[in-house]
Amino acid sequence: MKTSLPWKLWARQVMAILRIELAKNFKRKRAIPVYVLAFLPFLLWQTHSLVHIRGWRTCSGSEDLMVYAGVFQVFVLRLAIFFSAVAIFMNLFRGKIVEKTLHYYFLAPVRREVLVVGKYLSGVAMMVIVFGAGTALSYLTAVNHLKLTASRAVVPAAMADLPVYVGVTALACLGYGAVFLVTGLLFRNPIVPAVAILSWESIIVFLPAVLKKFSVIFYLESLCPVKVPFHGPGLLFTITAEPTPAYLSVPGLILLTLALLALAALRIRKMEISYGTE
């Protein structure tokens, strides 16, 4: 006897959840800082090329690409996507509890696991669209600017890195999304765990390779096309793990994400509706 799993039904239900949630994710108030964070680098690079065109300052093109990589790794990955994920994902379920509407999901013939996947994907889709666009625009601006400088020759090679940057951006949304989905289910107040995770992700460079695997940033950094040499005294203590090749980093990050989602599903399965005492 073979009972096949109802994948089609699950897919339809996930789509229905996306239809309900996605538009809301874009429209809610807490999305505004997310837009600002996502498009700030773009504005930065626009300003940079404007300054150059006006002839106020000249710059070397290859240095620009290094600066881009630095801004991407420090600002976009570690701060912008990180805190946007806090804002979006921590509230996927918590927000419904505050609103007292989570029971409508629990009263539908939908497995709680499917609900977790649908909600998660609605957050991921929103983040990937916004940050994917932000990264693509800022990178195109930066590369376009190269055409005006002496280093015109590096443009084709630089263009080849565009999909890598967008891809890393998407993976960052995937990874941090899962981290904060789980965090939002485990904690009522998001600040403390968010700060703790930020610290963890920051000290991870000093930790042995085994531990690095339990951070999101570890996978993302080894995927970035341009390595940024970090300066400063911290460097002395940095344990540089061998840069992990993409064919290990990508599955590694996806595995970490799946493990976190499984944890979220377990948590949601046990969840009871009691708005009064929340």
């Binding site: 309900i20 809301k24 509407t101 029971h103 629990f106 009263l107 013939p109 939908v110 497995r111 708005y275």
Partner: peptide, 20 residues
């Protein structure tokens, strides 16, 4: 088992809240 249960069950709760 909500996937099976709510094919046959409908529940009107006492909560007076609705999706926004």
């Amino acid at each position: 088992d909500p996937e099976r249960l709510f094919k046959v069950v409908g529940y009107c709760t006492q909560f007076d809240s609705f999706p926004r």
